[in-house]
Design a protein around this nucleic acid. Structure first.
Ligand SMILES: [Mn+2]
Ligand SMILES: [Mn+2]
Ligand SMILES: [Mn+2]
Ligand SMILES: [Mn+2]
Lengths: 154, 154
DNA sequence: AAAGAAAGTTAGACGGGGCTAAGATTATTT
DNA sequence: AAATAATCTTAGCCCCGTCTAACTTTCTTT
């Protein structure tokens, strides 16, 4: 084995370059959803919904409070700050877009849910726009979609 | 705030349900790439390529060895096991597919690279097939793609 | 064959995000 | 108003993947 001979491969973008972790995005998304459906987000509900212990939720909620994404009052409740709402709406939008998009391709709901829950954290603004535009166009091409669904079947 | 009133939200799939972490997939992908381009994967090259310290690479390589994804000989070198190769090829395929797909939509290379590097870990087999089929069809629809690119531009 | 340089390893630490057990607080029953 | 149940918090722990500093091994020069 010869030594050295440096390779150049495209640089990675460490997770830390993103403003917030996937975990934080998932919490905010769920908190917004709870607030929208039942009017408030309780620790116990978030825990149940994310399948995580209450203790872990309390931890994270305190952290989100410290980061200014929500205002939390011990034992009482929480509300999203403007920053938190913005992020929550943003991730929700990406979630919805990907769900719609994969739905057009004829995938099963549980597959869609699983994949979207991961992918949603990794599509940047330009990609969101591109997929939005694509989805728009695809809706007008039922024949093409039918071919895709059939081909993807087996 | 009233108490209780249990909500039902779709369950999450914890990272641990996946056979291997995103990190492991990234290492394997890069190791395979290095082996293909220069014939061998050295700790120093992996480190440089992933922008990670050599110490961290040594750690992970030992772990991958322990998990049977590669055979590593201290100070000497490593080769992928069959299991490791399978995984490496699999993630490479997903990387390539997503790169092609997003390329069709007219996104910039650096955006594509960044998003793909994250998304590739979250598309299951059925989704791979669906996007493959879609990509196939889209290649035959230059007019549609032109509309997508234009719409996504602003 | 040294000596210096490069590559690799180990040790110890850290932050993120999860858990359980135990205790504190708040809500609901009786 | 107690007593009980539900909810929430704290403390202490763990695993993952990363880092730096120091040390070892291997390679390249001279
Ligand atoms: Mn998610
Ligand atoms: Mn989501
Ligand atoms: Mn990746
Ligand atoms: Mn990749």
């Amino acid at each position: 084995m010869p030594r050295k001979q440096t390779t150049k491969t495209p640089p990675r973008r460490p997770d830390s370059d993103r403003a917030h972790s996937s975990t934080v995005e998932d919490y905010l998304e769920r908190i917004l959803e709870l607030i929208n459906t039942k009017g408030y987000a309780r620790v116990v509900d978030i825990a149940e919904s994310l399948q995580i212990s209450q203790a872990s939720v309390t931890n994270m909620v305190q952290k989100l409070d410290a980061e200014g994404l929500l205002n939390y009052e011990r034992y009482r409740g929480m509300i999203l700050t403007t920053a938190g709402q913005t992020l929550a709406l943003n991730i929700t939008r990406r979630h919805q877009l990907l769900t719609d998009f994969l739905g057009l391709l004829g995938l099963e709901d549980n597959v869609i849910y699983r994949d979207v829950e991961g992918m949603e954290h990794h599509i940047s603004a330009p990609t969101v726009r591109a997929i939005e535009a694509l989805t728009e166009q695809l809706k007008r091409q039922p024949a093409l979609l039918e071919r895709v669904r059939t081909a993807a079947q087996q």
